[in-house]
Design a protein around this nucleic acid. Structure first.
Lengths: 167, 167
DNA sequence: CTAATAGTTGACTAAATCACTCGGGTATGG
DNA sequence: CCATACCCGAGTGATTTAGTCAACTATTAG
């Protein structure tokens, strides 16, 4: 599993979708405006989410996206993995970078860490997040300023550049 | 905090150092041979570890590195942070990428994750690792094949490319 | 003294990845 | 038929990774 701002954007967008579920569908443009993410970038992310069956789409005017599953059945781990398609088998467990064709000294450490992170992220669903008071507070704040007219260019300057992976 | 193969190499090398503590010093060339890491690369890593006061060095023939602290006082988190000098304050907590100059929807989630990972890695010291049966097994295997003559070129092809960050 | 050892430093590099943008599609409701 | 919204692929600049190379400096054995 990998953790980049890409994955974080995806989770944020999915949470926005979950929050606005009461509409039939939510347009990406709305999510883009509310969360300050570039529209074209969102399109990229949602293409992957759709391929993984996490969201469903309706085309044409009035169309948009909706969750393909109940919010309680979509975990953060699922979203992150959908985005960072890690068919990335080149892993310490049986590979050469582990030195002598076997486990390296710290193999166990990293795999245990990976397990913990996965467990944490898999234990949190969109439903969990929606009920979080901290989240609701932000939702409320965003509702008061319904449409900040963000020019198509000046959005989403992710200044921080941080990653997190774990096989 | 960031987690890359760089940090992993550092932890592996430090663990090797801890395992061979009975010698006064351990030469980087020995670590390089045992762990299959390029010598020049190790030099880079140990320069940082030294600046952070985690290792001490002795120059000249017979010289090498040793732990600057008891193994029980060096945690994995310290090593990783020494390598990925993250004076990297550009974080969600008070930055613009969090959208409306305040917390973004998922701020809490990521900071909680970061906390957990840090706690996990800070709870494990070199002393912990040395006593790990899995580690001892690998050490034993490496001891049986004391010097595999690795030509200076064909070392350290880290095929996997994975990162892990968490502010 | 001098050669060999071993750490110290800095500049450099190829390849990969990230975080996007751009431009054009295609379905669909009014 | 046209505006809306999803769909898709290619391209790009900046950054990072995972190193390499070359030239030091300190120390010790002989």
């Amino acid at each position: 599993m990998k953790l980049t701002t890409k994955g974080r954007y995806a989770v944020t967008a999915m949470l926005d979708l979950a929050v606005h579920q009461h509409h039939d569908t939510v347009a990406l443009a709305d999510i883009a405006a509310r969360q300050g993410i570039s529209l074209s970038y969102l399109e990229q992310l949602f293409a992957k989410l759709r391929r993984r069956g996490l969201v469903a789409s309706v085309r044409g005017p009035g169309g948009g996206y909706s969750l393909a599953l109940p919010a309680a059945q979509i975990s953060v781990a699922q979203i992150v993995m959908a985005i960072n398609e890690n068919i990335d088998a080149t892993r310490c467990g049986g590979e050469k970078n582990c030195h002598g064709e076997e486990r390296c000294l710290t193999h166990q450490l990293w795999s245990e860490l990976s397990r913990r992170i996965y467990e944490f992220l898999d234990g949190i669903t969109l439903a969990t997040l929606v009920t979080e008071p901290e989240v609701q507070e932000v939702v409320l704040r965003q509702a008061k300023r319904p449409k900040l007219g963000v020019p198509r260019n000046e959005i989403a300057h992710g200044s921080s550049y941080e990653k997190a992976d774990l096989s």
